[in-house]
Each structure stands twice: as structure tokens, then as C-alpha cells.
Amino acid sequence: MSGYYPYGGSGGPAPTPPDDKGSTALRTVLLVAAIAGVVTVVAGLVIVLRSPDEYGLASNRDALTVQAQPDGKATGQPEQALFQAAPDVPPPLPQITPAPPMLPSTPIRIVVKRLGINAPIKSVGLAKDGTIEVPPPNDPNLAGWYRNMSTPGEAGPAVLLGHKDTRTRPAVFSPLFKIKNGDTIEVKRQDGTTAVFTVGGVEQANKKTFPTQRVYGTQENAQLHLITCGGTYDRRTGHYTDNIIVYATMTSSYRS
């Protein structure tokens, strides 16, 4: 409102105050115009953001993938890759020199400290259908040693089996899927020695394509192969679809 001065100021006589009704109408018009302008700007931004390519605003950042954080706090540590190979490929070895094999001795207990496994071992043979027997389900904290193979610590593969769960509770090898390369497994033997094995690989194999040669084939070093169930539980058959197989090599021993 140019030319308006406060009453008693310079520039001539005081002007007549503006009409209240006219002032109110003018303010209303200006307010509506301002709101309309804001709405127009917001609508334009929405259109541009929805189609950035058409307005030259697309960024290469949209195509970048988020990398895992080195400290593992933001996204967690990546899962260890499972061992995968043809059935006739030898078992994976840990990055450590194998220890010389020992004389045979019956295993009596298996201990995997990091997983909280500490269980007695029972000798098992073949079932009537030709498959390896499994420990009785009424004792969930019990592992089975297949007595037709090497004893743990002896040259060749020693095979231990254990249930993943029973109808009512987890069983001895329930946490086995969490084992990692480099973990150690101890097997206490009847002769008073403990064979220490280092994990070199973990495999999940479909039971229909079980790697028989890799698990039971002849080996020069003292090896330990742990077997339990994995994959999906098939309610129709009452069995899991896969096996979890842990491959470990003896890297030391001590007298208990």
C-alpha cells in the first residue's frame, strides 16, 4: 500500500483508513491464490519424482546394491557357503596339515563345544533293508558310530550319525547346521585318547542323490563325517528331504 503513512507523519495529510470489508476480501483472494500456488508446486514435484527418467533426474545410485558391513552389525555376517560338488569328488579338507592317523579304538563320546554338543556314542550296524541303523529315538542325546567303517582317529572315514529331532524335542545333532569351517570336533576314545578334528566343509545333499563315494570312500587321512537330517520335512513320508553332512579331518590328538 504505497503512499500510506502513519497518522501525523510527513508526506501530507493522513489518508483515510482503508475500508475493512475491502481489505478482508483482498486478503481472502491473496490467501486462496497462495494456497493454489503451493498445491500446483507440490503436484508438479510428485509428477517429476514418479517419472525421474523423463525429467533427467534419474540417478545411478538406484542401481547400486548395499554391501555387507565389515563389522557385521548392520546386516549380520553372511552365511557360510555350503560345499557343492559332484558325488565322486573327494571330501573338502581344512586349511591345516592333517595329523598322522592313530591305531583303532572305539569312540565313546563326541563334543562340539561351540554348539553345545556333548553326547555319548553307540555302535550301530546295518538295518534289515541295508541302510545304516540310527540311534534309538527314545534317547535324543545319543550319536551312532557306524562300526563297519574306521574308528575316529584311524585312517579312513569314521561316520557318526545323529537325529535332528524327535516327535517331541530337538535331538543331539539339532544345531549341526550351525557348524562352520575351522570349528573343532572332539571324539573321546576307549583307549583314553581324544581325537581332534577340524571342519573343512558342510554339505546339504538330497537323499535321492546322496554322495556315497564322498562319505564312505577310502581316504588316507583320519577323517570324521557327521550325518543328520536337513531340508524340508515331508509329512507324507515322515522324513526330511535332505541330509546335512559335515566333513572334518583329524588335526591333533591328546590323552584325556
Rank of each mutant, 00 (worst) to 15 (best):
G200T: 02
E154M: 13
K73I: 06
V89S: 14
R189H: 09
A74F: 03
P137F: 14
E186P: 05
L103G: 15
Y146C: 12
P6N: 13
I35C: 01
A34K: 07
G125K: 05
V89M: 13
M102G: 12
R147Q: 13
V29W: 03
N138R: 13
E54Y: 09
S51R: 15
F197T: 03
S2I: 12
V196H: 07
Y240R: 06
N138Q: 10
N141Q: 15
P94L: 11
Y7T: 12
Q204L: 10
Q213K: 13
Q190M: 11
G125F: 05
K113H: 09
P100I: 11
D19Q: 06
K122D: 05
P211Q: 10
V124Y: 04
S2C: 09
P18T: 04
Y247P: 09
Y240K: 08
L142V: 02
D71M: 02
T237I: 01
L57C: 12
Y233P: 00
T212E: 15
K208E: 11
P140F: 00
T198I: 11
V159I: 15
T106H: 13
R189L: 15
G22S: 11
L115E: 00
E54R: 15
Q190H: 06
I179W: 01
T151P: 09
D88R: 15
A68T: 08
N181D: 12
A25E: 13
V41T: 11
P100V: 09
I244A: 05
P87H: 13
A68K: 03
P107I: 05
T97D: 14
D183S: 06
A58N: 09
N181H: 11
R147V: 12
T75I: 05
A205C: 05
K207F: 03
D129T: 03
T249A: 05
T168W: 03
K164V: 12
R255Y: 14
P136M: 12
T131C: 01
L115F: 00
N221Q: 15
L224H: 07
T16A: 05
G56E: 06
G9H: 08
D129Y: 04
V89W: 07
R214I: 09
I117C: 01
A74C: 01
A143I: 03
N243Q: 06
T65M: 02
T241H: 03
K73Q: 09
N221E: 13
K164H: 12
P175G: 03
H225P: 10
G201N: 02
G200R: 02
T16W: 01
S59E: 10
L26H: 11
E154S: 15
G125R: 10
A86D: 14
G116Y: 00
S252N: 15
D234Q: 08
Q213C: 07
K73S: 09
L226G: 04
F83M: 10
L103Y: 10
K207T: 04
F197A: 09
P13H: 00
V32L: 07
G144E: 02
K208I: 11
L160A: 03
L160T: 03
V112M: 04
D20A: 10
A86T: 13
P13T: 00
N221A: 15
G144Q: 04
G9P: 02
F173K: 00
V48D: 11
V159N: 11
I132A: 14
Y5K: 10
P13D: 02
G238K: 01
K113I: 04
D234R: 04
G37T: 05
A25M: 12
A119K: 00
W145Y: 07
L93P: 01
P170E: 02
P78Y: 01
